[in-house]
Amino acid sequence: MAVSWTPHRFTGGILALDTANTVVLRNEPEKTFDRFDDPVEIAHFAEAASGFRAAELGGRPLHAPEPSNIKPAVIAIRETTDRLFRHAVSKGAVATAHLPDFLTACASGLSASVVEIGAPDQPFGDPATPVAFEAALALSALSLLRDETVARLRICPNCSWLFVDRSRNSSRLWCDMAVCGNRQKANRHYRRRAAAREVPNA
């Protein structure tokens, strides 16, 4: 089934977390599903992310010409990123036991590409040419290791997506207030009305 890569699917705040969130409902094993089951969606995601993550990428477009070939590298980075930083949110610190697999996955993503990074205003290299999706994904994931970023990571209490809280007072609760926030408000309203109906008349 084709995926509509809408703005809501890019509420992680950074490419690596948007990618981690392509597994839906990780906290509900009986309902969870992977939007990358069809490798074609990796290319569609990369195309959409080129726009939604243009600021992070320094305007450099993402390129995923053979999604079937890059899928193992992408999935490895995605899953080790989710494991490492989901644990960091839960425990308040990065677990060194999770780092070897994470770093190996990122190294694999970078190994197939020659990417020069770190120039002023060009964090992912020359914006005039596309960059391999798996290489950009690895760079994005590695950037999450900054202390100030780890401290701002959150897990949405509605959908369990990871996101970076960039609010001024670090008080953001939902990955997307318009979606998850409103769903939780609607659920609370429904529960209150249902509880009120169950109270017998005095």
Score class of each variant (00 low, 15 high):
Leu142Val: 12
Leu84Cys: 15
Ser68Met: 13
Ala178Ile: 01
Leu57Tyr: 10
Asp38Gly: 09
Asp37Pro: 02
Arg191His: 04
Leu153Asp: 11
Phe45Pro: 00
Gly109Lys: 07
Val199Tyr: 04
Ala141Pro: 03
His189Thr: 08
Thr6Pro: 01
Ala132Ile: 00
Pro127Asp: 00
Arg192Met: 14
Arg9Leu: 09
Glu28Ser: 06
Ser111Asp: 13
Leu144Pro: 00
Pro127Lys: 00
Ala76Asp: 12
Gly109His: 03
Ala55Ile: 03
Leu62Arg: 04
His98Trp: 09
Ile42Ala: 00
Ala132Gln: 01
His63Ala: 11
Ala195Lys: 09
Ala49Met: 12
Phe85Trp: 06
Ala141Arg: 01
Leu162Gly: 03
Val89His: 04
Arg197Ser: 08
Asp34Gln: 07
Glu47Met: 09
Val3Trp: 08
Ser160Ala: 15
Gly125Gln: 07
Thr96Met: 04
Pro157Arg: 06
Glu66Leu: 13
His87Phe: 13
Ala151Arg: 13
Ala16Pro: 02
Asp38His: 09
Asp165Lys: 05
Thr6Asp: 13
Pro67Ile: 02
Leu84Trp: 08
Val199Ser: 04
Gly58Leu: 08
Arg193Tyr: 04
Tyr190Asp: 08
Val23Thr: 11
His98Gly: 06
Ile14Trp: 05
Ile70Val: 14
Arg9Tyr: 01
Arg191Asp: 02
Ala48His: 15
Arg78Val: 04
Leu144Ala: 01
His63Cys: 03
Asp37His: 07
Pro61Gln: 03
Pro200Arg: 00
Arg168Phe: 10
Trp174Gly: 00
Gln184Cys: 06
Pro65Gln: 12
Ser108Phe: 04
Lys31Thr: 10
Asn27His: 15
Arg86Phe: 05
Asp165Val: 06
Gln122Glu: 11
Lys185Tyr: 08
Arg26Glu: 09
Pro61Met: 06
Ala93His: 12
Lys71Val: 06
Arg192Tyr: 02
Asp18Gly: 01
Thr96Asn: 09
Cys159Gly: 04
Arg26Lys: 14
Gly51His: 13
Ala49Val: 10
Pro7Glu: 09
Arg183Pro: 07
Ala20Leu: 07
Leu25Gly: 08
